[in-house]
């Protein structure tokens, strides 16, 4: 089966950070994110401090920056949006001198807003990646359970983690089969076929969901996952 091994966000290790109880780490992440969001964006040096804290945790966990940084690309669409704000926002304009000898006038308040969005977003993503790199998905779920997170949501998340690889492998096989019949998924001419594949994938996954539910009922499932036997 083509399922990828391991979760792509977790960095195996045995540091203090890795061994810390998951629910404390989740609370730590939540607290950190709230503090970052609540900090006025004009307090520029403070954000440097936050960054140092995160880098310190990563160093303590012995997770190389080269591992975390490429995974931050998930933030790119968000940064693009932030970069647009100075151009579309209202208010007094400032001129920025550009390397080519010309000037760019942008909204001053927009610039500050963009900075705020970008820095807070980046810190949040970096902090979340730190949690993901040092905590196995199953432990995150257990931590959430210990924090009295609604049971149904924990169940849904655990199934998502379990079946992500299976569904991705399903999709991979379907695309391979399409390629074998002369479809190029990158060419817009074939996008309708690709869309139908996604529809088929949805139906397949839905049917798999039904079969999983049958298998669960067959083993006495009564709407609640038992405490994991660990």
């Amino acid at each position: 089966m083509g399922a990828g091994h391991g979760h792509r966000l977790h960095f195996h290790g045995h540091s203090v950070v890795h061994r810390a109880p998951a629910h404390l780490k989740i609370l730590g992440l939540l607290g950190f994110a709230l503090v970052v969001v609540a900090t006025p964006r004009e307090w520029y040096p403070v954000f440097g401090g936050y960054l140092l804290v995160l880098l310190g945790v990563l160093a303590l966990a012995r997770v190389p920056l080269g591992y975390v940084l490429p995974r931050m690309v998930i933030e790119v669409p968000f940064l693009l949006f932030a970069a647009l704000i100075p151009f579309v926002a209202e208010g007094p304009r400032v001129a920025l001198s550009m390397p080519g000898g010309w000037e760019l006038t942008v909204s001053e308040s927009g610039l500050v807003a963009a900075w705020g969005l970008a820095v807070k977003g980046t810190l949040g993503v970096l902090a979340s990646l730190t949690l993901a790199a040092t905590t196995e998905p199953a432990d995150v779920l257990q931590g959430l359970q210990r924090l009295r997170f609604p049971d149904l949501l924990v169940q849904i998340m655990s199934f998502m983690i379990r079946y992500l690889d299976v569904v991705t492998a399903d999709l991979g096989r379907m695309i391979t089969a399409m390629r074998s019949r002369g479809v190029d998924p990158r060419s817009p001419r074939h996008w309708p076929a690709l869309a139908r594949t996604l529809g088929a994938l949805f139906v397949r996954s839905y049917e798999r969901g039904e079969r999983v539910h049958l298998a669960m009922l067959s083993r006495g499932y009564d709407g609640r996952l038992p405490e994991q036997a660990r």
């Binding site: 199953a138 779920l141 379990r162 996952l225």
Partner: peptide, 9 residues
């Protein structure tokens, strides 16, 4: 078996 094995370990 993928229908039957749905837990993390």
């Amino acid at each position: 078996p993928d229908d039957q094995l749905f837990m993390g370990s």
